[in-house]
Amino acid sequence: MNASSATVSRTLVGRVLWYLPVGLIVLFFAFPLIWMVMTALKQPVDVFSSPPKFVFAPTLDNYKRVLSSDYMGTVGNSIVVAVVSAAFSIVLGTLTAYGFSRYTLRGQDNLLFWILSLRMLPVIAVIFPYFLLFQRIGLTDTLLALMLVYSIFNISFTVWLLKGFFDEVPREMEEAAKMDGYGPWGVFQRVALPLVVPGIATAAVFNIVQSVNEFLLAFVLTQREATTAPVALLNFLTPLGLDWGGISAASTMLVLPVAVFAVLVRKHLIRGMSFGQLE
């Protein structure tokens, strides 16, 4: 064996040793998703077969059934609620986080903790107060009610996440913009904001996933009109048993828009997940 082929085989061995465990980890975490997609394509008889079938004749029956039901309307509700509440909490959260990061406020630490404590609250503890409140002001079974409640929970997370990002923006960069002739808003918009885009992308994904997943509040606060997809999945629980094929097809369609969004912002997401580290 000559020297160059030795190097090739060494790098080949190195690659296998690297990709094998990575592949196994990915498979482990992606397995439920893969299983869901496979179940969505199975005939009812294949769904329950034992041992489980990995090779089967695929069918689109489950998708047809889901598409012809009113489920897609609830997916629409979920997406509208998630996007609006994420947008609202990002706008408010970004401004709040910038304020906390750049200005010294009286009782700043207490305020920040109070904001965080919103997140610590178990949803079940506030669910009936919310229900009574929305009933009183006539907002039950409206998308607006869900948008408001989700925004409240999302803002606390967004403020904490983005404060960390703003803290990492060097002061000198903002001072340089001040010297260049920008006022406080210009400094925020031209310098601070573009530098925290990874943080905003991360917050957006977390907020959207959170809202799309949420079940308990949506279950209590909506009846028909504003029902979201996680609640609508209950309809697949029939007197005849669970329609696993239908649930899987429906879930796939709920996951798809979120996955597409995550792929679109993935460039920022990787830097966002590593928390700051500008260049």
Binding site: M173, E175, M179, P194, L195, L278
Partner: peptide, 12 residues
């Protein structure tokens, strides 16, 4: 106008 020690250049 001012030049900062760190140059304060914007990565974006």
């Amino acid at each position: 106008a001012m030049v900062f020690q760190s140059y304060a250049l914007y990565p974006h």
